[in-house]
Every structure is written in structure tokens, then in C-alpha cells.
Design a protein around this nucleic acid. Structure first.
Lengths: 109, 109
DNA sequence: TTAACATGTGAACAGTTGTTCATACGTTAA
DNA sequence: TTAACGTATGAACAACTGTTCACATGTTAA
């Protein structure tokens, strides 16, 4: 039956568990308002923890934890300058991803 | 100081809480392997709950719950055909969003 | 009508996640 | 060197999330 072939075909072509896992982890990283705001801010400028904590009005610790999560998935990079760490988005893919999501949301509000 | 103006500027231009919330909820919807696989499957064909549960090898209930979450955020639509409900992606934005994420992940593996 | 089927849904439980707190580390200015 | 600063991190707790289970609803075939 045609229908059964469709099912087999999709099952066969499903991305591997590894890809799916990485993808869903990447998306879930954005799935938190705090991290979303961090990404928004970093899409405007390179910023240090202290500045981010002012912009988001949150503790250094909370910001730092979230930045670590973003860094673990290669979504942001950072450079040290003295006692400060300046963070920025890692590549334009991230911005594309973010903007694609923003576009979707704004169209529906 | 310039630096302070940057901070003020970013704070002022930050999207409203509503937009950020909707955006992060949208992303978090994708932030689960089960839903990611559902979206992947639906990007290939319109499918009913039963077929999805075969493809993902999961219970009807689990699939149905996840589909509801996807539907609540307008990410999928469905049509009834007798006792079956056929689901499909709601618009091409979703696919763009999904593919943009996939592109990002695949480039790094 | 009855039985089998396909899906939907509420409750509950386990597992995960995000924040706070306390503290540690490295850097700079005095 | 010492004190203040900026950031990082582990532990712990609260809050959230996803799955399963049990059952309900609606549909089709016999």
C-alpha cells in the first residue's frame, strides 16, 4: 500500500538520533525568555556579563549560567579583556535562526 | 559614556515581554526530540496520529499530547477525515525555522 | 446496535531545568 | 600586597515538562 510506503520512507530518512538531539537541544536553548533576551541583546552588540545583567535586570550569576549554556552549544563565543568577558553571537546562523523565529512570531501578533 | 548609551539603547529596543515570551515558547516547542521528529516527519507528508506513532515508535497518547502543544502555538494544523486526524505543518515559516536550525547543526557535526 | 478503532484528555509521577545562594578564582587599582 | 571588582561554578530547591495510565469521545464496519 502507498500509505505504508510513505511511513517506511519517512522512517528511513529521519535524521539520526544524534542530529535530532543536537537540533532539539539547540532549539531548547532558545526556549527560555532569559536566553532569548540575551541573544537579542548580543545581536545588537558584544557585551560583558555585567552589562547583560544591567540590560536584563538580573543577577550576574543567572546571566553567567545561561551564557555557559549558550557557549556549550557553540551559540556564543567570548573573549577575555582583563577581568571582563565579552560575549558575542558565534556566527550569523544564530541570528538567522533567531530572526526566522521572530518573523514567525511577529506575523501572528 | 558610549558604553552606557549602548546599554540604554539595547534596553529600549528590546522586544516586549509578550514577543519574547511567544518567541521562546515557539523555540521551546522545538526543543524536544519527540516534537522535533514530529516536525521532521510532517515536513515530508501530512500524517495521522496513528502513522506518527508508528514512525516514532511511541504511544498514541504521547503523540497526541505533543501534537496538541504544536497546535496550541499554531505550528501545525489538522483536518478530520472520518475517525482520523491528519496533521500538517501550518506554513512554510515553520519549515524555514526547522531547516535553519538543521543547517546550523549539520554544519557543526 | 455492538465491537473495534482512532484520537483526545486529565491526573500523577519522574525527570529535567532555572534560579538563588555561597563561595572561589583571577584581575586591577591603590 | 590588599581590597574591590568581574566572572565562574557547585549545590540545592522550586518550578516546569513529558510521559504513562486510565478513561472518554466519536467513528466505522459488521
Amino acid at each position: 500500500m502507498v500509505r505504508e510506503n510513505i511511513i517506511k520512507d519517512i522512517s528511513r530518512n529521519m535524521e539520526t538520533g544524534e542530529v535530532i538531539d543536537k537540533l532539539s537541544r539547540t532549539f531548547s536553548i532558545f526556549g527560555d525568555p532569559t536566553r532569548t533576551r540575551i541573544v537579542f541583546a548580543l545581536s545588537k552588540a558584544e557585551l560583558c556579563v555585567n552589562e547583560l545583567s544591567q540590560i536584563l535586570d538580573m543577577s550576574h550569576s543567572a546571566i553567567s549560567h545561561q551564557l555557559r549554556a549558550l557557549k556549550d552549544l557553540d551559540l556564543v563565543r567570548y573573549r577575555k579583556d582583563g577581568r571582563r568577558s565579552y560575549y558575542s553571537l558565534n556566527d550569523e546562523h544564530i541570528e538567522n535562526l533567531f530572526n526566522e523565529g521572530l518573523k514567525h512570531v511577529l506575523e501572528r501578533m
